[in-house]
Nucleic acid binder design. Structure first.
Lengths: 143, 143
DNA sequence: ATAATAAAAGACAAAAAACTCTTTTATTAT
DNA sequence: ATAATAAAAGAGTTTTTTGTCTTTTATTAT
């Protein structure tokens, strides 16, 4: 469904959001441990998301990644789009470039429904909405 | 969503089903052209599906791939499972191995709904049900 | 100013996925 | 029997994805 990169990205962002709840910046090492993902790899991913303004970062001692108020409102769909592009939301399920209403693939209409629901679900979920459940241990990001 | 391999597989199977409607066997070259996919690559894919009994084949002159009655009843979910396995239907959306009802990822319940709908949709679609629409030119498998 | 910290950047490496080419085997028609 | 046909099999290549390692740059505290 998502690329590994995207899975890590979503998990990392939710993790950072949770830490940012307390106004705490969190370093790559802590994120890496917190979501059980390869350190340098998520570093890369977060650099990219940082460049795109979806996450904020600070260098030096006491530095790390964090989310300012506006960024906490970003949806998971925003993350997915930033990492995997929007082919998941708009591309043809059978990989046809010219698939469209006029030239639909056999599953065009069926996929449309599924994709819309997937998109709506991700669009309506913010990175910060899981904070409480995570703190309470009702939801998990590792393993 | 699906791997490229799986996209080709579905398209090839629907294509073969349509040709099999007339009791005609269809060769790799024709399939390759018919669904606009690399010849040797779909050959590989169909060999695998053939081994698993999802498609039938005959060597020699007038040989090719075809679907016997039973195989026409196979669902697209069967194809997907044979090619990509069932991680799309059962795996965690965020890539967590231990994600479960007891230790759910933040999106566990949301994904469950989407995945079920995707699965139901594919499970209820047979490879042969698009024959008429394809013949009438209402649905397409190329480009 | 200096040392310590932590992200940014860039070059590499490994693994998986996608794709190609060649040889072999089975079948059919002549 | 032979030649032609077409899938099966296997080896190999390319590209993409995933993951690692090292160096650089920015910031902070002393």
């Amino acid at each position: 469904m998502f690329s590994k990169t995207c899975e890590y990205a979503i998990r990392a962002m939710i993790f950072i959001a949770q830490k940012s709840e307390y106004g705490v910046k969190v370093g790559i090492k802590a994120i890496s441990k917190g979501i059980n993902a390869p350190e340098h790899f998520i570093a890369k991913i977060l650099q990219e998301l940082s460049r795109k303004g979806l996450v904020q970062s600070a260098k030096g001692p006491n530095g790390g990644f964090f989310l300012e108020a506006e960024s906490k409102k970003n949806s998971l769909a925003d993350i997915v789009r930033a990492v995997d592009g929007d082919k998941l939301f708009t591309g043809c399920g059978l990989g046809l470039k010219n698939c469209s209403e006029k030239m639909p693939c056999p599953l065009h209409n069926e996929f449309k429904v599924i994709r819309k629901q997937l998109h709506d679900m991700l669009q309506s979920s913010t990175v910060a909405e899981f904070n409480k459940e995570l703190i309470q241990g009702m939801k998990h990001l590792k393993r």
